[in-house]
């Protein structure tokens, strides 16, 4: 399994350190040529969303990444990454707009209002959550799963294969959220394999010979 990390600006190295710890391969995306490598999931890190939005356009990365997201590429956005995914942004403009939520930018105020808390993440137990000039989710559409709330605000959600947090799990040393993301990628790969087997059954091909690994390979080919 290979994860691409958008490395235009911000805390991308911290995500890489976490993935290294979990034994997942990853590489950085800084320019168009980097997209020629196959990958199974994408991380949009924390940083300044205005900067990333501008660089996505200037470096011609927006369109190819957008079409991958529309095809269902698993994606994980933290803080600024959440803002890039949100369909509606209060106090800013949407970017990819694939995640059916309204996110409020700089929702808690300036740096003096940054804080830590511990809350449950998706029923997996309480985890540390640093909020740094963070957004929160004002409203999530009905089919979006809420994974965490803090202070009566939604701060982590999942919609199909999109995961987003208003806080920074990459800064805490707690791998719960990253592990959840890796599981999500695996889940999609397995689902695609089932789908493929079914498809092949119809054509009376030998579906039984497909291993999960091969399923993953085929997923890659489809994506690229």
């Amino acid at each position: 399994m290979t994860i691409a990390i958008l490395a235009l600006q911000g805390a991308f190295a911290e995500h890489k350190a976490m993935l290294d710890r979990l034994g997942a391969n990853c590489f950085e995306i800084r320019k168009l040529q980097d997209l020629s490598r196959p990958f199974d999931g994408l991380i949009l890190p924390g940083g300044e969303s205005t900067v990333m939005k501008k660089l996505l356009r200037d470096l011609y990365l927006f369109d190819p990444l957008f079409s991958k997201l529309q095809d269902g590429l698993p994606v994980f956005g933290t803080c600024a990454g959440l803002l890039l995914l949100a369909k509606r942004v209060t106090g800013g403009e949407p970017c990819f707009g694939t995640l059916s939520v309204t996110a409020r930018r700089n929702a808690y105020g300036r740096q003096l209002e940054s804080f830590y808390t511990n809350q449950d993440f998706g029923g997996l137990g309480s985890i540390p959550m640093p909020f740094i000039r963070a957004p929160y989710i004002e409203q999530a559409d009905d089919f979006v799963t809420v994974l965490s709330q803090a202070d009566n605000h939604i701060v982590a959600v999942r919609e199909q294969y999109q995961l987003a947090t208003a806080f920074h799990p990459e800064l805490t040393g707690d791998p719960t959220v990253h592990r959840y993301f890796l599981d999500m990628i695996e889940e999609r790969a397995n689902q695609q394999m089932t789908h493929l087997s079914f498809h092949q059954d119809c054509k009376t091909w030998q579906a039984g010979s497909l291993s999960p690994k091969m399923g993953l390979c085929l997923t890659k080919t489809e994506n690229n």
Partner: peptide
Amino acid sequence: NNRSKLNRELAQMLKGG
């Protein structure tokens, strides 16, 4: 301690900028 950690972490968000 938390405050100084949060403040260092804001700088981490500025990296590459």
